[in-house]
Structure formats: C-alpha cells, structure tokens
Design a protein around this nucleic acid. Structure first.
Length: 504
RNA sequence: CGGGAUGUGGCUCAGCUUGGUAGAGCGCUGCGUUCGGGACGCAGAGGUCGAAGGUUCGAAUCCUUUCAUCCCGACCA
C-alpha cells in the first residue's frame, strides 16, 4: 500500500503514527484554540459507549448522577493547601463578564467596567465546589454515605497537548462520595478501582492494567491514598487509565463538613473522589491499533459489522436487497447483551477496495463482502479487523459466525495486550542495569525494582532516567516481589518492588 | 516559561537565493466509463501568499515589526 494512502508506521515514528491515526480514523481534530479538541462523531461515539458502560457500573453500585457548575470562586481553591498547589499553575481564570465594541471600531474588547468582584476559576476538577455544596447537605450519619458522580468537562491549561491523551479541556466523570468512617471511604475507593474501573478497562476496553496505590510523590494533591490503573502502550510506556482517591478528612476539614454520629458526636466526614476521562480513548488507540488504523474492541465499537455490497448495474440491486435482508437479521441478534451494530456502505461512487480500507482505518470489527458470485453460491466473505483473516460463510450461518467472531476478537485483543505487557515487565536489581533499561528515549516497559520509599530517591531516579514510579501493585506479579530487598538506587532497605516506567 | 523552526487553495508542499502580479499532487464539484483490496477520462470550482508597515515603476520573493502554529526541553490525567 502506498505510504500516502496509509498512515505512518508505528515502527517508523510512534508519535506520528498516533497523530495520523486520530485524524485518519476520523476521531478528532485540533481546534483553533491551542490544546482544545474537536471530538468528531466517530470519536464521540466511542466515548458514548464508554460512558454508557461506566455509568451502568457506577449505578449498579448505588451511585447517582448530578451536575455541579463549571465556575468556581477563586477563594475555594485556597482552602486546601496541597490541592491548590497541585492545580494553581494550570487554571484558567474568568475575570470579566462583558465585551464591548472596540473604540477603534475593529472587533470587540473586554469591557474594563465589567471586572468581576471575585474572579472565577474554570474547574480543573470539582472537589472544592462539590464539598462546599456537601456542607449544606450533610448533617447526620443518616445522610451518609453520599454517592454522587458527575459527567462534565474540565480544563487544565496544558502546554503540550496531544489529542485525547492530554488536552486543555477534556471530558470525564468525577465521583465524589462522603462516608462516616475512614474504612468505608477506603472500601469505596477500592470498590470503584476494581469493580468499576478495572472491570471496565479489562472487559470492555480489552486492556490489561497493573493496579495499586501511587507513591507519595505521584499521588493526587489532597489525597491520603491515590489508586491508579496503569496500562502499557505499544511503544512500551505506561499510561494512567484512571484514578481513585481516598481523600480522608482533608476536604471535609477544608470545607468544614461535619456530621453527627449515632452516638451524638460531631465528626468530619471521610471522602473519596475518582475519575476517568477521554484519555481512555487515547489509551484504547495506543494499546490496540495498528498500521492500518484503529482497532476497536467489539464491546466499544460504534459499528461492529459493515456490509460492503459489490456489483454494478442489475447485479447491484439484487446484492443490495440481499444485504438489507442480512443486515436486518443481524441487527436483531445480540452479543454481550447488546444488539449487534450494523452499517451498510451502499455508496455508489466508491470502489469496494476503497471501502475496505476506509472501514479498516475507522476500526470497524467485521466486514461482510458480498457480490454476485457470492449470491449465486449463497455465501459471503467475513473479514476480521484484528488479524485481517477472511472466511467464506454460508448466508444462513452469518449471524452465528458474527457472534463468534466478535467474542473471539474481544478475547484475542485482551490476550495480545496482556502478552505484550508480560513480555515487557521485568525485574531489575542493580543501578547499572536500571540505567541500561532506560537508556535511549523510548519506553522500556515496566521495570519492577526495589525502592527505599523516600521522595529523594524517587526524584533522583526520575531525574536520571525520566522513569517514574507508576504504581505499587496490589497484586504482585510474583510473590517474591513483595519480599524485602535493597533499593536499586540507594542500596537502603526496601519493603518490596514497585513499578517504574516512562509514562504518557 | 527557555531553545529551534515554519506560516502560500480544504490538506501536503514547490516558487523566494537572482522582485515582473501564483503552481503541483491529493481532496472537492459535474458528466461518462468503472466496481472481488485505496479506479480512470474529460470538464470545473477554489488562494488579496499569516498580519501591519517600509523599499521599489512593480513584492509571495528584499527590509522592519508583529501574530500564530509546530518541534525539543521544565510541569501535568
């Protein structure tokens, strides 16, 4: 295939490949405002599938949705010292509320008369505005737990944006819960981590993750514990797919949110917050896609099966009639609890070959090719996006074959990603070896190494290698990983191995 | 915020050194022939060359200023 028709190969330039992929798969575009992204219908459809699945999981565990405002009084951010330090550098600030015609007649200017009494921050996250509201909602232990989620946009003024992976404005969900005890909050943070995020990422996205707390240096500002789910991209970097925080009483104290216990005592509530964002779309792309474009796991694919009718003239109509009949039958079949999502590409001006490439680029899972010859033989050709294999199928078996193929594709994608992760996760015991692992610019997989637990060591390692501690796995790869040893950098005692990697 | 580069139809770029009033490929529109892995022919549409000022008979091209974007570093989901 000619290069100009395809996209940059992963092996040639991974970053270019990713940019090409997002654009050519018709997922998103850069906006005129730096760092902002236009999510196109096809990309948004993937996000909608993600939203639907996650929303279902949250609700299954008793959470409800609400919406809190975009604008936050500046003073709210000064209430939690650590928290503000984490976000202050990337906040957009609203200072005025009116424009006027420019005195020189050219365009509009900010009306200096319309300066706000108190400046407003465009939310980088909603902890502060939500905890201010919760203060009014919570009086008694009977008001707890409070289990609320919101789907929203947030803004963090990013200097180096990349579509989906890091944009100034992004879409996400943020859960904010309040509890009577620390243990309850801890259980909530873990519940979301495993039963919602890990389940969704593994079962829907077909992406394996390493799960566990962040180090002190990497945790969310204002959290007691931050849990993370780390995936591995095809260029062997780590990418954080989601976070769940046990916030302890930090925000309750900052916003003075107390409740009266059954014993009549006044106590600060315990909190969690947790989120995943449109970055998940970027993660999905990074993990599964190939040099022919987007590869989408069937459970998230906006279109699972595309029909490409072949033929012209009189033949064309006969083929098209049959295709409509087959597509209708397929649409009433189900897989993974949903109706199968089908599209017929009946455009007349494009050739079949063009359509094959077109839909492969966009990540449609299965393609049904059917032409006059097939019609005569009561068969069609079923092509898979993941391995490119084609199979001739009797028409009356199509629905069964499609269901089988979707299932095996979902599993195969997970297995392939898990293999890559396993093959690129290794133990390193000496500083020389560690440096060697991270020489060069690219990703080096997940390195399991001993760490003395200090911030100084973490900083020194990161300065020397650009690798950071991604995660302290809850489930060790090997029982030996949680045995004591000596720090790979300082030689001091270490309780266990942690995961180091270069990250997105 | 520091370092480097680039701004020319929708996209990728040529033209600039040596000033003479704008081109190619792709894409787009129409018609016809095609149709089992990115078809072809013919006919079209589309650009005050990032912006402002200057030099000149004449500026995409030379000079000054300015804006924007991209890449590389420090920070982040």
């Amino acid at each position: 295939m000619a290069k100009e028709l395809g996209i940059t190969a992963r092996a040639d330039n991974y970053a270019e490949w990713y940019n090409d992929l997002v654009k050519r798969a018709d997922l998103a575009d850069n906006s005129v405002v730096r760092g902002c992204m236009v999510i196109k219908p096809h990309g948004y459809a993937v996000w909608e599938r993600m939203q639907a699945a996650l929303d279902g999981l949250f609700k299954e565990h008793g959470h409800v949705n609400a919406y809190f405002p975009l604008l936050i009084p500046k003073s709210f951010l000064s209430k939690e010292a650590e928290h503000v330090e984490g976000f202050a550098k990337e906040c957009a600030v609203v200072t005025h509320h009116r424009l006027m015609n420019s005195p020189d007649g050219k365009g509009v200017v900010v009306d200096p008369e319309a300066k706000l009494e108190e400046e407003l921050i465009i939310r980088p996250t909603s902890e502060t505005i939500i905890w201010n509201a919760y203060k009014g909602w919570i009086q008694s232990y009977r008001d707890l737990p409070l289990l609320i989620n919101q789907w929203a946009n947030v803004m963090r003024w990013e200097l180096r944006p990349r579509l989906f992976l890091r944009t100034a404005e992004f879409l996400w969900q943020e859960g904010h819960t309040a509890h009577a005890t620390f243990d309850e909050a801890e259980a909530e943070a873990r519940l979301i981590l495993h039963k919602c995020y890990q389940k969704f990422i593994e079962e829907w996205m077909a992406v394996p993750v390493v799960v566990g707390p962040k180090s002190e240096g990497e945790k969310f500002p204002g959290a007691v514990t931050t849990y993370t789910l780390e995936a591995m991209t095809q260029d062997l970097r780590a990418i954080q797919a989601g976070t769940s925080h046990n916030l302890g009483q930090n925000f309750a104290k900052a916003f003075d949110v107390t409740f009266q216990s059954a014993e009549g005592k006044l106590e600060y509530v315990y909190a969690t917050s947790w989120g995943v964002s449109t970055r998940l779309v970027g993660t999905l792309l990074m993990v599964h896609s190939d040099d022919k474009g987007f590869v989408c796991p069937p459970r998230l694919a906006p279109i699972q099966v595309v029909f490409v009718p072949i033929g012209r003239g009189d033949e064309r109509q006969a083929v098209l009639d049959k295709v409509k009949e087959l597509a209708d039958a397929l649409k009433s079949s189900t897989w993974a609890g949903d109706r199968i999502r089908v599209h017929i590409d009946d455009r007349e001006k494009e050739t079949p070959g063009f359509k094959f490439n077109h839909w492969e680029m966009r990540g449609i899972c299965l393609r049904v090719e059917i032409g006059p010859r097939d019609l005569e033989a009561y068969q069609c050709v079923l092509a898979r996006r993941d391995d490119g294999k084609k199979e001739t199928v009797q028409l009356d078996q199509l629905a069964d074959k499609v269901v089988d193929a979707l299932g095996s594709m979902q599993m195969r994608l997970y297995a392939k990603a898990a293999e890559l992760m396993a093959a690129n996760t290794r133990r390193v015991d000496t500083w020389d070896e560690f440096l060697k692992a991270f020489e060069g610019e690219g990703g080096a997989g997940f390195i399991l190494a001993h760490w003395d637990g200090t911030q100084e060591t973490e900083d020194a390692i990161s300065a020397a290698t650009k690798a950071t501690i991604r995660c302290i796995p809850l489930e060790p790869h090997d029982p030996a990983d949680i045995e004591p040893g000596t720090c790979v950098y300082s030689g001091k005692p270490s309780a266990r191995r942690v995961v180091f990697a270069r990250a997105y």
